[in-house]
Computed example of a mutant assay.
Amino acid sequence: MLKKESPWVLRGDVVVLSDGDQLKLIAENGIKSIKPHNSDIAKLLHLLSTTGVVQELDNESEGSLIRKLKDANLIHAAPPCGMTPLQTIQWSWNEAVAPNQKISQQLKNSLIVVVGCGGTGSLVAQSLAGSGIGSFVLIDFDKVSINNLNRQFVFGVQDIGQYKADILAQRLMLNQKVVEAKSIISEITSSRQLAKLAKGADLIICCADEPKGAIQSYVANAAVQAGTSALFGAVGINNGIIGPLLKNRSSFQAYLRWIREVQSVCKKIIVPARFPSNGITNSIIANLMAW
C-alpha cells in the first residue's frame, strides 16, 4: 500500500544518458526516453539518484515525470529511517524486484529450514540471508573436511572437524546479521522427526542426499505435516536439478508418486553414481534455488 507522501529514489540499475534534446533512462528491462531534456528534469533525476524526492502521489497528474517513472518501475520507495547499511541495500534490491509489496518485511519475518548444509545448502542459506531472510533452522550431521573446500565456501581450513550446521549458523548471524540461525546436528530419519523441527516454517529446502533414496520423501511428507512448502535441488558434474517447488497437496502427491517410481528403479542399481561436484555447479544451482 502506497503512502500519500513517500520519499522516492531512482532504481540502482538505472543509467541516465544525455542524448541531444532528450534524456534516456536505461535499465535492465529497457529504455525510457524523456523529451524535452531540460535542467529542471536533470536536477530532479539527480535528486532521485541521491537523496530522494518526497512526493504526494495522489496529487501527481498522470502525465507527470514522477508518475511516469513510478509506472515504469524506475523509482521505488526509499528505505525507512533507522535501517543499517546492510538493511538499506537489501531494501533497495527487494523494492527493485517487487516494488511496493513490503517484501523486505516479509523476508525478515520468514523462517526457512535448510536440510543439508554442504555445497548447495550453505550457499542457498547465504544468498537468502543476504536477501533479508530473518530466521533459519539448519539441519546437518556432517563435519567439515578438507575435501569440502573446493565447493563449500562458507567453510575454511580452520573449520575442519567442526559441524557444518554450527559454522554456517555462526556465519549467517555474524556476516548477514540474521535474527536467528538455529543449528540442529542430526540425520533426518523420518518425516515425523523433520515435521517437528520444521514447525512454523515458511519453507523447507532440501539440499541433502542422505539417506539416499529416502530424504526427498521425508522432506515432502514433513512439509505436508507441517503445513508448509518444500523446494528441492541437487547438483551433478556439469549440470544440476532445481525443484520442484511444492506448494499444494496435489503437487506433493504427484511428487511422492514419482519418488516411489524412482525408488523402485534404485533397487536395481548395483554400483551407484558418486556425482563429484565443485563450486561452479554448486553456486549456479544454489543461487537459482534462492532466487
Rank of each mutant, 00 (worst) to 15 (best):
I103H: 00
A78M: 04
L107Q: 04
W93F: 13
I66K: 02
H76K: 06
W93T: 12
G63K: 12
E62R: 12
L74I: 04
Q106R: 11
S92G: 12
K70P: 01
A77T: 13
A77N: 07
I41W: 14
K108S: 08
P85A: 08
D71V: 08
Q101A: 04
P79G: 13
S61F: 00
H46F: 08
I66M: 15
G63W: 05
I75T: 10
Q105L: 09
K43D: 14
A72I: 03
P79T: 14
S61M: 03
P36S: 14
G82L: 05
G63A: 11
L45H: 02
P36V: 08
A96R: 05
H37G: 01
N100W: 01
A98D: 07
L74Y: 05
C81I: 12
W91D: 02
S104I: 01
A78Y: 04
G63M: 06
G52N: 01
S49M: 02
S61L: 06
C81G: 09
I41T: 15
S49K: 10
V54D: 08
H46P: 00
E60T: 04
D40A: 12
L69Y: 07
H76S: 11
S39G: 06
Q106K: 09
I34M: 11
G63V: 06
P36N: 13
I41C: 10
S104A: 11
H37V: 00
N59T: 11
A98K: 08
T50D: 10
T84S: 15
L44T: 15
H37M: 06
A42H: 12
S49Y: 04
K70M: 11
D40M: 05
L44E: 15
K102D: 15
I75F: 10
T88L: 02
V53G: 02
M83Q: 13
K108Q: 10
W91N: 03
I41Q: 14
Q90A: 01
L107K: 10
K32P: 00
I103F: 00
L45C: 01
P99W: 05
K70L: 14
I66D: 03
V53Q: 03
N94G: 00
P80F: 09
V97E: 11
K68I: 08
L107T: 04
C81D: 11
L57H: 12
N94M: 01
M83F: 06
V97K: 14
A98S: 12
H76L: 03
V53N: 02
V97C: 09
N94H: 00
E95H: 05
V54H: 08
L45T: 01
S64N: 04
C81F: 05
T50C: 04
L65W: 02
Q55P: 02
K108T: 04
